[in-house]
């Protein structure tokens, strides 16, 4: 519903131009601009540091460069899910749309980051274990997390009043993290019947010195990007809500005007 309303926006008549409304052109603010600049500078440091300057690992050779990108992405995917769960919980408790919007934005980012986790994980697995996919507990539960997030987002897209939609979504969002944990546990028991331990990509690598530094820089930079995306995404969802509200108010006014001769 929301998306359809909004996608008709460009050039549609009757809409005020930006100059009339004033304000920045979109979802940016001083905070996000500062964040964005910091993130871009960080990327400029992180990419050469991770790809060229960091030394090769004794066990992993140059595959350690996968670690710098894959692990922060995976951590942020999980953080997104935690934020979704927390936002859902707070919505059910406080019933403020703000929390629902936060949960929704974080779930969207979560889906993107989980997909990236799966892709980079496969690209790491291919040279490291010789296969893109393995039915290991961690991989399988990440894939299930992806599907749970897609289900949550599909539920969000389903039409309904804002309030009932938020309530449904909050319950599914709240169950997201427990679901992943139950799935993870059951897959873990299932697979451990066949193979004694889960495959560990890093083996018995010891992380220290330059590698640790690279990893920390990477985590910081990726977190900045994540935060920037989250704020922008949150504001887009907020705008969608406002537009729904304004459209509804406008429609009511028009209806009333029709009624009065």
């Amino acid at each position: 519903m929301t998306t359809q309303l909004a996608s008709g926006a460009p050039g549609s008549p009757g809409l005020a131009n930006p100059a009339e409304h004033g304000g920045g052109p979109g979802t940016g603010s001083r905070t996000t601009r500062a964040l964005g600049v910091a993130a871009l500078l960080g990327v400029a440091v992180f990419v050469p540091l991770g790809l060229v300057l960091s030394p090769e690992d004794v066990m992993q050779n140059d595959l350690v460069r996968m670690f710098y990108i894959h692990v922060p992405v995976a951590i942020l995917a999980f953080v997104s899910c935690l934020v979704t769960g927390a936002g859902s919980f707070m919505y059910l408790w406080r019933r403020q749309l703000w929390w629902d919007t936060a949960a929704c934005s974080a779930a969207q980012l979560g889906a993107v980051y989980t997909a990236l986790t799966l892709v980079t994980g496969s690209l790491w697995g291919r040279p490291a274990w010789g296969t893109y996919w393995d039915w290991d507990a961690r991989l399988t539960s990440t894939a299930m997390l992806m599907l749970l997030l897609l289900g949550y987002l599909a539920l969000r897209k389903a039409p309904g009043t804002a309030d009932s939609q938020a309530k449904r979504s909050a319950i599914v969002g709240l169950l997201l993290v427990p679901n992943v944990m139950i799935v993870r546990q059951s897959v873990d028991w299932w697979r451990s019947l066949h193979q004694p331990a889960t495959i560990n990509l890093l083996g018995n690598t010891r992380i220290g010195g330059t590698m640790l530094f690279c990893f920390v820089v990477g985590l910081a930079v990726m977190s900045l990007i994540w935060l920037w995306l989250l704020i922008h995404r949150f504001r887009v969802s907020w705008l969608e809500h406002q537009i729904d509200r304004l459209d509804l108010a406008g429609a009511l006014l028009a209806r009333r005007a029709e009624g009065q001769p």
Binding site: G151, A154, L155, A158, G160, R168, S186
Partner: peptide
């Protein structure tokens, strides 16, 4: 959760089957 939505026939399997994975296993 899916009841009353126009898309419930397609939404329910997507929501429910991942949740029921542990039961299947």
């Amino acid at each position: 959760l899916a009841a009353g939505l126009r898309v419930r026939e397609t939404l329910l399997p997507l929501l429910l089957l991942p949740v029921l994975t542990p039961v299947l296993i």
